[in-house]
Design a binder for these strands. Structure first.
Lengths: 188, 188, 188, 188
DNA sequence: GATGAATGAGGCTTCATTCAT
DNA sequence: CATGAATGAAGCCTCATTCAT
């Protein structure tokens, strides 16, 4: 919602604090699951709770911001994947990059329990760019005849939620295997 | 005081209430996620909170019971699958049946956020029979050369957690598709 | 309140249950302090909670009954003490017997925290006979000049509450010492 | 994070609130016995329940703090008494001062029902200074031949618990009498 | 009559959020 | 602006009492 009309440049230290809070929150959610408390996040960030509330009106708002960052990462990954000419390789690249992002954000998944909800129509979490890029990645693969025809955007998204679960349970060096199994499942 | 430590037959109405609580809890977790309140569960079950606590000392104990039932269902499914002679068909049957069980227990997944944790060494949730039967299902498929060699019990379990997430986001008629994609990913 | 007009003879087993409950309660209060639960008492008595409620409408009523028994014991002790001719020896005998009773009822003290309250005007716990006998015991000792003049019935009672505390903390073989110290303090 | 583990000076208002809570709790326990509720204490202190829990993690912790203050008062009284040269007068002074402290803390006694428990080995409530000073007070009196030889520290403590009960039932102007009777009982 | 399962008001405690310093 | 102390609604659980078996 802060697309244009920047209200105010924000002081350097304020921006730094904001960043620290977001990073601390991501780590905290990862270690503590859904029940991390604002005090924990504040302590990790090295600030007082009050400072968090200066930047985020609500705990939920803080979580929302993390999700938006997650989706933005996804959009960038999809864009990068589109630069690969081969349709299937592009899709595979996107899946592998996404596995990393999803693993890094495993804490968020635990907050919601249900990643799927994040991409739901009722939540405010849509990233147009991600949506568009993913659509094109799938379309190219469909056109090339390498992606199962019965897997559209909706199915792909649902399956990706499963992959998110899987990779978030796996160690860093296992993610590649799981991405491969996943991709094999999608191939015609 | 009953000499040989009989677990006591339990009055008919008590057993019925216990069952109602478990069923109500499953539904409640499904609709309300992890934060359902004991009062909610009680209301759905048509009993007072006290009755829940007579049967389950703790909210967690109630959840644990549901999980144990889940695993027991899994064990039974695996046993049924073993009765199918063809190794791959047996595995496929187990995966499809499991998709049903996992979908029915989607609420529990949300309670934990992390199903993987359930099968952790540190939690009390192991079902020996499920473990043994699954091991044999995989061994048969490996011997027949139909299952990817790099997918052992651990990997299978991790992947199943992903499938649990996927099917719990899907409608009843989509589960078959997701199970198929999953199985295709596992095949050599 | 059940002086005359016995409502009904009460069946033998009913009377026995009543007795068992009272005894179980005394022991339970002693071991568990004020927070013993009705279930505990029932278990110790070997009956169901319902049976307790058949005999005592309220937990408080059960406690009241125990207190009344305590006071009745005290009255009997005082009567016995009055049969000793020597005034001081009579008083001493009463104090020593009381030490036993108070020790046996230590649990009740913990229930109230404040034995003094038991003898308060606002509670229903007066035992006329105890009151009268104690008055006479003191009067005799005062007349003989062996009891401090500044210790009347009120003061004596207050001091006895202290002795109750002391002996309830002491082992069986220490009670005599504490009673002696107590008596020495009262002597002229 | 303050390198040398400073206990932190604590903000002025925080310290004041902590004090208010302790004082309110003392009064509340006195009036309401063991079953005072945290809400009551909070209301009396003019703070919210949360504030109590910021200072004391548990109701029990609050009680513990009051007990420690009680024992610290006792230790100071014993130290003061030791400055009196005459052994018996020193002991007498300690007993009289203690009567005041015990009366002021009558509520705490009711919380436990059993003060003796407070000085038990299993509770964390020992005050080394009180223990040492009391030991010396008794030793001096024993050496002077004015204190009964069969009353050691243990017996003295047990008897003091009785005095605590007595004075807490008495009005302010009666305490002196009860202390005198007590002392007379201890004298050779 | 006896039993123990069911009830539910009420207590202790937590934690997101607000506000004085 | 930053801090962390204060707030209080809300949740889990207990236990005296009631009631169906």
């Amino acid at each position: 919602m802060t697309s244009t009309a920047e209200p105010r440049p924000m002081r350097a230290d304020a921006r730094r604090n904001r960043r620290r809070v977001l990073d601390a929150a991501r780590v905290a959610f990862e270690e503590g699951g859904a029940e991390v408390q604002m005090e924990d996040i504040a302590r990790r960030a090295g600030v007082g709770v009050g400072t968090i509330y200066r930047h985020f009106p609500t705990k939920q708002a803080l979580v929302d911001e993390l999700i938006d960052e997650w989706l933005a990462d996804g959009a960038a990954n999809a864009a990068e994947a589109l630069r690969i000419d081969d349709p299937w390789e592009g899709l595979a690249h996107f899946v592998r990059l996404s596995a990393e992002v999803m693993a890094r954000n495993r804490g968020l998944r635990m907050v919601f329990g249900d990643i799927g909800l994040l991409f739901d129509e009722n939540t405010g979490h849509q990233n147009r760019e991600l949506h568009d890029n993913a659509t094109r990645l799938l379309a190219r693969a469909h056109a090339a005849g390498t992606l199962r025809a019965d897997v559209g955007l909706r199915e792909f998204r649902t399956l990706m939620c499963g992959l998110a679960m899987t990779v978030s349970l796996a160690g860093p060096d296992e993610r590649r295997l799981y991405a491969d199994v996943f991709l094999q499942g999608l191939h015609t």
